[in-house]
Design a protein around this nucleic acid. Sequence first.
DNA 1: TTGTAAGCGTTATCAA
DNA 2: TTGATAACGCTTACAA
Lengths: 349, 349
Amino acid sequence: LPEGQRIDKASRDSATMRDVAALAGVSFKTVSRVLNLEPSVRPMTEAAVTRAVAALGYRRNSAARSLRSGAHMASIGLVIADLANPLYGIMAKAVESVADREGSVVIIASTSERPQRERAIALNMLNRPVDGLILAPAGQDHRYLQLPRRLGTPVVFLDRPGGGVEADSVVLDNAGGSQEAVEHLIAQGHRRIGYIGDGRTLPSLRNRLDGYRLALAAAEIPYDPALVVLSSSRVELAEAAAAGILRASDPPTAIFADTNRTCIGVLHAVRASGRRIAIAAFDEFELADMLSVPITLVSFDAGELGRTAAELLFARLGGDNSAAREIVLPTRLIVYPGYEPQRVAVATA
Amino acid sequence: LPEGQRIDKASRDSATMRDVAALAGVSFKTVSRVLNLEPSVRPMTEAAVTRAVAALGYRRNSAARSLRSGAHMASIGLVIADLANPLYGIMAKAVESVADREGSVVIIASTSERPQRERAIALNMLNRPVDGLILAPAGQDHRYLQLPRRLGTPVVFLDRPGGGVEADSVVLDNAGGSQEAVEHLIAQGHRRIGYIGDGRTLPSLRNRLDGYRLALAAAEIPYDPALVVLSSSRVELAEAAAAGILRASDPPTAIFADTNRTCIGVLHAVRASGRRIAIAAFDEFELADMLSVPITLVSFDAGELGRTAAELLFARLGGDNSAAREIVLPTRLIVYPGYEPQRVAVATA
DNA sequence: TTGTAAGCGTTATCAA
DNA sequence: TTGATAACGCTTACAA
């Protein structure tokens, strides 16, 4: 497992306990005593040592420390696609909370949805090493994890399944969730329903598209490619995509967005169009209930997702050797009717 | 610096390279070769070693590894109040991005706004140790960082100033931002302006309250304690607080909320009241432009906040020994007029 | 291709 | 109260 980034020792000043001891005029064991706050050190000696430590800018070497003591700091790695996405923030918080309970710290990194960066970061973490890894993958090929897995490091995929390696995963019922949402739109009378999302790369998003198609098929509504724009999940691209199908000759009366990112783009496009378009989307977000337009969301408990993944990882670390599991968490449809504030006169002072 | 959490060596199975070598019938150096992917190993030998590794559940000891090689993994600690808050997610992402550029990983932890947990976590990180620490503090007493600071670990406070220790900080112009927002409300004719927030514990939030008072004073509007509810920053408490002053005999015509959390509570309370109340708040959030009610926000660049803090930290790690700095980043008032969707008939299929 | 010896910087043991 | 020495598990250098 190479690829870890390291700081060359020479680049930092590294005085050792022996250097400090020499400057303070004591043995290096005495320095050790001072730094470990052991009681049996004369105040004068301690002062001399403290001064020498400061003078040399000495920092204890943790590797040597834990080498002899045989203890090591427990840590798990969390590699996620985008920390700035509130959903991942909630998941990260849940993971961190479980890890803390288990006496572990979380090393976290954001891949910006780039598979190559994901690979580099994951290998970097394993090289530190971390005790286990939770990965919300951007890529689909995780064969690079086969070796670490064989060497005993547990891996849990979060929110999105992994590929090419046997490992646990905790995911959502993506197809079921979007199918339910689209069925809801159909039940409201919509028959031309647009789809904005990224149904090409990530399996989880492909499944959401599958759900859309299933719902249409069940209602015997033909799949119209002109209503489906598979762009990336970036807000601006989704907005442009939605604007495009709204401008078309036979526009949709409803649009389904496959993530909270695409949903925001769709909301903006719909507003810009000046039309009333029904909107449904995967992912819940705060203030959905305060929007002026009605919206239907496929909601789920992001904290539960993170918590489940973390608990699974610690179970593995605790010795659970059973076969790799896939845990699928349910989604729940929430219908927000849209909030129209009353036009009451203000009681001005 | 004690207080780090450790896993006792005995609790994990720790076979050593010698154990693996014995089982594989080779010297332990050969095991080392296999694990380091060195080329000069016969496939048969390698297979034997791999088998032994698997059989024993062997994991390389990173401490011993980096001890001899003299290199160590660079890392910085990021301790934040609440990862689930989108603003902190954005900051964390920015920090992570700078750290990655600098070849460092980020160890992240969430304090859930609890000062004691903050202390435990920060000391835990320093004990690992990390090369430096970025801290968005929940508490105000950071004397526990004096020793680590003297021992040479740089610390940067993020978003909120620290207390009792000399260290850099990157904060917002909190007073200025809220003053500007309240002045905006006053300019719109409001004279009874409520304040919902937490003006007691955190200095940054106290400063926001100061800004409110300054704006009132400048307009010669008397400060009315009945309009000010200093509760915690939790959404439900803010909602209850806002509901309270809206029910009172001489209610406000406008409300200022000191964070995005309190703002959400206020929004709900205002909706429940059925009145038209002007709302202003600190912190921007997504979809503010899509809300049905007008809202004025004190906006800032959370990414810039995180980036600045990280860059300052790496400057310190790079040898910058100048006096501790306080960097104050500006805020910007954004007025959202409130979005009223047009009532256009839907072109149904 | 494989093995032997030395040593990384600390903590643990035991002696002074 | 302090110090000398061994040992932690590995990588590096060198030898076979």
